[in-house]
Amino acid sequence: MRVIDVQRQDTYFDLPLVITFDGSVQGPAYLRMEVDEVIDLVDELNLALDVRVREPVAQPCTPSGS
């Protein structure tokens, strides 16, 4: 779930998780991550799972007029 905080002009992601203990579901939780953290996580998961991504996860930002 992507969340945009208009007051702070931040964009972050809430990654849904399920908390378990001894195989029993305890309840839901969300891990809030900054955009850069999400990109790093996707890259690390792809590396760990040996997944080949066809396109980059994010494009580099360039200032207008450059």
Score class of each variant (00 low, 15 high):
residue 44 E to G: 01
residue 15 L to A: 07
residue 3 V to I: 14
residue 66 S to C: 07
residue 43 D to C: 03
residue 5 D to M: 00
residue 13 F to D: 01
residue 51 V to D: 04
residue 2 R to D: 05
residue 42 V to D: 00
residue 32 R to H: 12
residue 60 P to D: 09
residue 39 I to R: 15
residue 47 L to G: 07
residue 26 Q to E: 08
residue 24 S to G: 03
residue 24 S to V: 15
residue 11 T to Y: 03
residue 55 E to L: 04
residue 57 V to L: 12
residue 29 A to I: 05
residue 64 S to T: 10
residue 8 R to M: 04
residue 54 R to T: 15
residue 65 G to R: 08
residue 41 L to I: 00
residue 9 Q to D: 13
residue 27 G to L: 06
residue 1 M to W: 01
residue 37 E to D: 15
residue 1 M to T: 06
residue 35 V to D: 07
residue 24 S to D: 09
residue 53 V to P: 05
residue 28 P to S: 09
residue 12 Y to T: 02
residue 23 G to L: 03
residue 35 V to K: 11
residue 48 A to W: 04
residue 14 D to V: 13
residue 61 C to Q: 07
residue 28 P to M: 02
residue 58 A to F: 10
residue 7 Q to T: 14
residue 46 N to E: 14
residue 66 S to Q: 08
residue 10 D to F: 01
residue 21 F to D: 10
residue 30 Y to T: 13
residue 51 V to T: 08
residue 52 R to Q: 12
residue 35 V to E: 11
residue 2 R to I: 12
residue 17 L to W: 06
residue 27 G to K: 03
residue 21 F to N: 10
residue 60 P to W: 03
residue 7 Q to P: 01
residue 13 F to T: 10
residue 21 F to R: 11
residue 17 L to M: 15
residue 64 S to R: 08
residue 42 V to S: 00
residue 49 L to N: 14
residue 60 P to I: 00
residue 42 V to T: 04
residue 32 R to G: 03
residue 25 V to Y: 00
residue 44 E to K: 10
residue 51 V to R: 14
residue 45 L to G: 03
residue 19 I to A: 03
residue 66 S to T: 07
residue 29 A to G: 04
residue 9 Q to H: 06
residue 13 F to M: 04
residue 52 R to L: 05
residue 54 R to Y: 03
residue 12 Y to L: 11
residue 49 L to A: 15
residue 62 T to G: 01
residue 41 L to A: 14
residue 28 P to D: 11
residue 60 P to Y: 06
residue 43 D to R: 11
residue 32 R to D: 06
residue 13 F to Y: 15
residue 38 V to A: 12
residue 23 G to C: 09
residue 40 D to Y: 08
residue 59 Q to P: 01
residue 11 T to K: 08
residue 30 Y to A: 13
residue 55 E to V: 02
residue 53 V to D: 08
residue 65 G to W: 07
residue 52 R to C: 01
residue 58 A to C: 06
residue 37 E to L: 03
residue 6 V to K: 13
residue 55 E to F: 01
residue 54 R to K: 12
residue 27 G to I: 12
residue 15 L to S: 02
residue 53 V to K: 09
residue 6 V to P: 02
residue 8 R to G: 01
residue 40 D to M: 11
residue 65 G to E: 05
residue 36 D to N: 09
residue 28 P to F: 12
residue 38 V to P: 02
residue 15 L to W: 05
residue 11 T to P: 01
residue 7 Q to L: 07
residue 49 L to D: 10
residue 47 L to T: 13
residue 65 G to C: 06
residue 34 E to H: 08
residue 41 L to K: 02
residue 33 M to I: 14
residue 4 I to F: 13
residue 44 E to C: 06
residue 43 D to Q: 11
residue 26 Q to V: 07
residue 47 L to C: 10
residue 62 T to S: 07
residue 32 R to E: 06
residue 48 A to V: 02
residue 14 D to L: 14
residue 48 A to I: 06
residue 24 S to I: 14
residue 43 D to F: 01
residue 50 D to K: 15
residue 44 E to D: 13
residue 66 S to P: 02
residue 30 Y to E: 10
residue 34 E to D: 11
residue 16 P to F: 05
residue 47 L to A: 13
residue 63 P to W: 04
residue 45 L to R: 09
residue 45 L to I: 13
residue 46 N to Q: 10
residue 24 S to Y: 05
residue 12 Y to R: 14
residue 46 N to H: 09
residue 59 Q to E: 14
residue 11 T to I: 13
residue 52 R to D: 07
residue 31 L to V: 01
residue 42 V to H: 01
residue 66 S to K: 12
residue 39 I to L: 12
residue 65 G to Y: 11
residue 22 D to W: 02
residue 46 N to K: 12
residue 65 G to V: 07
residue 6 V to Q: 10
residue 32 R to T: 11
